[in-house]
């Protein structure tokens, strides 16, 4: 089995020693201790594991680590810049767009990818882009508000 020895995560080149077929989520969480990305379903249905690969929102639980090697991986752990929150992170706090917040990192990554591609999405575009992310506590209305507040700014 092919081995993967390094990954570009959050702007840093990190050493790993894993089989290429292992899930990216597992490598991030268990080998690199980047636990901001969450396990929720293992089948790409809930979005809790969402990371950006070259800017594209990707379900890391069903992505083999080999497919992410050599690409730029961004996780929630690297979303803020030197402790300064992004406007989207600030907007989530302000809108109280979380309860248990287990889905929050995935929500932020999906929303970041959307805003990078489309800085002023309308409500339908937000719903379409975010529909793969489950919030079991039901804070969807506040998440939409948070995204809208950033896109309107």
């Amino acid at each position: 089995m092919a081995k993967i020895t390094s990954l570009n995560v959050n702007g840093k080149k990190l050493s790993v020693d894993v089989d290429s077929t292992v899930s990216l989520l597992s490598v991030l969480r268990n080998d690199l201790d980047l636990t901001g990305s969450k396990y929720g379903c293992g089948e790409g249905q809930c979005g809790a594991c969402t990371v950006l690969i070259d800017g594209v929102a990707t379900r890391s639980c069903i992505t083999q680590v080999g497919r992410a090697a050599g690409k730029q991986i961004t996780t929630i752990d690297g979303l803020d810049k030197d402790g300064k929150l992004t406007p989207l992170q600030e907007a989530f706090i302000k809108a109280d767009a979380m309860q248990c917040a287990y889905c929050t990192s995935g929500m932020l990554m999906s929303a970041s990818a959307l805003l990078n591609k489309n800085p002023k999405p309308n409500r339908d575009e937000i719903v379409t882009a975010m529909n793969g992310n489950i919030c079991r506590c039901g804070t969807y209305q506040r998440i939409i508000e948070a995204i809208e507040s950033v896109s309107a700014a």
């Binding site: 980047l34 636990t35 901001g36 990305s37 996780t75 929630i76 752990d77 979303l79 803020d80 929150l85 992170q89 989530f92 706090i93 109280d96 979380m98 917040a101 929050t104 990192s105 932020l108």
Partner: peptide, 10 residues
């Protein structure tokens, strides 16, 4: 949420 910053940063 009192410790919201911990959650939006993972």
């Amino acid at each position: 949420k009192v410790d919201a910053a911990k959650f939006v940063t993972g």
